[in-house]
Design a protein around this nucleic acid. Sequence first.
DNA 1: TTTTAACTTGTCCAGATGGTCAACTTAACC
DNA 2: GGTTAAGTTGACCATCTGGACAAGTTAAAA
Lengths: 203, 203
Amino acid sequence: MTGKEKVRWDSTRKIIDAAEQIFSKKGFEGATTREIADKAGLPKANIHYYFPTKEDLYVQVLKDILAEWINDAEIFDSSDDPEIAFRAYVSRKIQHSFTRPFASKVWAMEVIGGGTVFDVHLKSSLLEWNTKKCRQINKWIEQGKLRKVNAQYLLYAIWAMTQHYADFEYQTRIINNGQSLGIEQSDEIVENIVQLVLRGVII
Amino acid sequence: MTGKEKVRWDSTRKIIDAAEQIFSKKGFEGATTREIADKAGLPKANIHYYFPTKEDLYVQVLKDILAEWINDAEIFDSSDDPEIAFRAYVSRKIQHSFTRPFASKVWAMEVIGGGTVFDVHLKSSLLEWNTKKCRQINKWIEQGKLRKVNAQYLLYAIWAMTQHYADFEYQTRIINNGQSLGIEQSDEIVENIVQLVLRGVII
DNA sequence: TTTTAACTTGTCCAGATGGTCAACTTAACC
DNA sequence: GGTTAAGTTGACCATCTGGACAAGTTAAAA
């Protein structure tokens, strides 16, 4: 990758990173292209060269995030042992809360706000992901590895708890005396969520 | 309450209700006073008569929500039996997800976005609430009623799971074939969360 | 070297934004 | 019934918004 290719790649990367931060603070409507441009260190017109509209950019940011989550969830199928699978999945998800804190927030804002963009571009990917995971949990139940729980509600519970540490980072920081929960606490957090889940579902 | 008093009360109520909806869709920056006025069925200038600035209105909406949550959590102290207390609290929280769906979303957006307003006006109330609840859980642990768990993380877990059904209603709806989880499912949801919590903490 | 397509950016614009204000109506108190 | 304070509202404004565009620069192909 040289010359123009590299320039294109660098610029889009810079723009998406900046957009992720601004969208995560203000949501789609509240974010301004100027602010995104400033954070990216590029003129506003340049943003519009790579992403014709604000919405195009927003969609790209959301697609990136879902792709990463779907990737995270692959690990769910990595083991036939639900304990290992749950722990691996939660662990990855929590890691990402710390290493890529803005991504999940953009998603959260989009969904909370009613998912206008979501509806058109992301619905089917999410549904597919969800169906697959439910099927896996139900398989474990059939195999007698898990208690007979509602797979969907269990998935929501795991989702909710892991998301919390990313999305509500600000709230947990306030409660933790203004000190961010760092990567050092992540093992503790993971273990806590996993314990709760396992005691709930392992026979 | 007659005449002017009633007028004032009616108008502020209408405005706050409308604001709650708009803020929950667009966040603080994305919401416009015009849109709030339209939803409230009042001229924009009238909004500014009761709430001089957009931020004044926003703060009021957030304060209302926190007040309700603090009220919800009173029930936590209503019983010495943690099982009864947890069930009552989760149940109330989930009820509110259905009866007042916008409130929690405004809060979520504020916190996710970094809590500028939160910081100044709501921090201390939240901290006080949190400390009290942790103390109660720790008391139960000392009394041997609960397993030795980290009270703070347990509180986060309960918080996250209950919030999920309010904040991510849109996502759960998509997954549920476009059909909203109605008040009819609320018992099921409550029982699911409570079971997970109880299996995790009851000795 | 010339040509061409990709990229950059300062400038501009129609429409929207939060908020003001002055003219007005309503209801309560003397 | 007259005075006053509370409430209403259309018109207005400085500023900001997403986006268009034309004049430029860069780098790769001919």
